[in-house]
């Protein structure tokens, strides 16, 4: 698509202005992370530290077993993402491509599961996991997600609904069964959306701390987010390590985003040709 010069300029201008809003607090985070304790709160604000203390990152990392936490976070993220992709895409496909009895009702239930705040279901949930003997393991964080979440099912359903029906009909004539139509025709076409789900799930799981906090007890089961929150005590907050670990925690989701960008574009050009 060709773009006129005027729109080009407007686009860049808008991007730069908005970048300030989105980037500035993040830059401030990085600058805080490399400051000394005496330089965080100054007035007039001190933008750059006297010496850049990159060692703060190493100190923060060594303050708790963050290697272990990273492993736990990776475990939870990989498992849940795999589960979401499979189960959520199945359900989304079921809801999007078929008319069946009870569809509206079942879809309402699906939506309803998003509507009750977590604080009131948490204690019953804790009781259930306790009964199953899953407290202080990573199971409560992984296993429920393997069945798919309403949020992602709804998202994928919306994508599927905006896809043309013609493919399915021609495939049916070719003798493909229902599951083959899903797996061979729609899954590849859904690739951008599936990658989107992967990225969104990764951000959510990676940063979720209430779940791991409540369902795990011992430090060896903590995820990164819980370790991060542990820098915030009841009476005092270790601001520099919080900033250091938050920044380190941003790296994997950003890498995932780069992969996503590449694939969205590839996936779409592939989909159109197919």
């Amino acid at each position: 698509m060709r773009v006129s010069k005027a729109t080009k300029i407007v686009t860049y201008l808008l991007c730069v202005v908005l970048s300030f809003y989105f980037l500035f607090p993040f830059i401030w985070m990085i600058l805080t992370a490399v400051k000394s304790e005496g330089e965080i709160f100054t007035y007039p604000p001190k933008f750059f530290p006297d010496t850049w203390r990159f060692h703060n990152f190493i100190d923060a990392w060594n303050a708790q077993p963050f290697g272990r936490f990273t492993w736990n976070s990776v475990l939870v993220t990989v498992w849940t993402t795999a589960g979401q992709v499979v189960s959520a895409s199945l359900a989304a496909y079921g809801f999007a491509r078929y008319q069946f009895r009870g569809k509206k009702f079942l879809f309402s239930i699906l939506l309803a599961t998003m509507m009750l705040p977590w604080d009131v279901t948490m204690i019953p949930q804790y009781m259930e996991f306790n009964l199953l003997g899953w407290i202080d393991t990573l199971k409560p964080l992984i296993i429920p997600a393997l069945f798919g979440s309403a949020y992602y099912i709804y998202l994928m359903r919306q994508f599927l609904e905006s896809m043309p029906n013609d493919f399915a009909e021609s495939a049916k004539i070719d003798g493909a069964n229902e599951f083959q139509i899903y797996s061979r025709i729609y899954m590849p076409m859904m690739k951008p959306c599936i990658i989107l789900v992967c990225v969104l799930n990764m951000i959510t799981v990676w940063n979720d701390y209430l779940g791991p906090l409540v369902f795990t007890n011992t430090q060896s089961k903590y995820t990164l987010a819980v370790g991060l929150a542990a820098f915030k005590g009841v009476h005092s907050t270790d601001i520099i390590p919080i900033m250091c670990i938050s920044i380190l925690m941003c790296i994997p989701p950003v890498v995932a985003f780069f992969i996503e960008q590449k694939n969205i574009i590839e996936g779409i050009s592939g989909g159109v040709k197919g």
């Binding site: 989105f22 980037l23 607090p25 993040f26 985070m29 951000i203 990676w206 940063n207 701390y209 987010a225 991060l228 929150a229 915030k232 919080i242 938050s246 925690m249 941003c250 989701p253 950003v254």
Partner: peptide, 8 residues
């Protein structure tokens, strides 16, 4: 970028 920063 901001979406990946933890709420704390």
């Amino acid at each position: 970028l901001p979406t990946v920063v933890s709420s704390v």
